[in-house]
Nucleic acid binder design. Structure first.
Length: 200
DNA sequence: ACGGAGATCTTCT
DNA sequence: GAAGATCTCCGTT
């Protein structure tokens, strides 16, 4: 059952928390590639110094102002595509970064995309999972609440609070204030093997 | 195990 | 000209 747009009409922190356990699905050449979301980060809005939206609207970050429930795929360090889902009320620039998934369907396809590395390294990071699922700019700004986009999220496991850890976001620069550097806006399933890193 | 460097696009100074 | 929501490879412990 696909998660509908009303789910994404809440603050980014709630969306990030509640996406844990859900199933990210990519349809590629009629094949289903999927995984359980095990790690997320929230980028909350204009006031969030770590967010691309902080310095205003540009060509790249335009999808963050897009309708909730759409994809925001951008090229990081000129090398890796990172997948976000837009959220909050429409026209409010917030998004949730999907940092890691646990593979479910399409295992042989993921292995191939990941050069037959060990399974634990297929999707345990935001840049890795986009390689495994063959996601790039061609899927930017698509509607993730319908199968027509070939990219959507389904309801999956319900993860209780006691199985979830919360902490600061990963990889942020030093130019932002401690308030936003330390803000607990990263969620992960505590014992899951596919989390990109267990602490920071 | 850990640390540094390179890859190379978008944005900002 | 430099930094960034990262990953990989290669060097040294």
């Amino acid at each position: 059952m696909i998660i509908q747009a009303d789910f994404y009409h809440q603050n980014a922190a709630s969306v990030a928390r509640n996406l844990l356990g859900a199933t990210l699905v990519r349809q590629l050449n009629g094949q289903r590639i999927s995984g359980m979301i095990v790690e997320t980060e929230a980028y909350t809005g204009l006031e969030d110094e770590a967010s691309h939206a902080y310095r205003g609207r540009t060509l790249r970050n335009k999808p963050m102002w897009d309708t909730a429930g759409h994809s925001y795929l951008y090229l990081n360090y000129g090398v890796h595509w990172l997948l976000n889902v837009t959220c909050e009320a429409d026209n409010h620039p917030a998004a949730v970064l999907l940092r890691a998934i646990e593979p479910l369907d399409g295992l042989s396809i993921m292995a191939h995309h990941r050069s037959d590395r060990p399974a634990l390294e297929w999707t345990n990071g935001p840049g890795k999972l986009t390689i495994a699922l063959a996601l790039d700019g061609s899927l930017n700004m698509v509607d993730m609440t319908t199968t027509a986009s070939n990219l959507w999220i389904e309801r999956g496991q319900s993860i209780p609070d006691e199985d979830i850890s919360v902490g600061p976001r990963v990889g942020l620069g030093k130019r932002i204030s401690e308030q936003w550097l330390d803000a607990p806006l990263r969620w992960w399933i505590t014992t899951n093997q596919y989390v990109s890193r267990s602490e920071r």
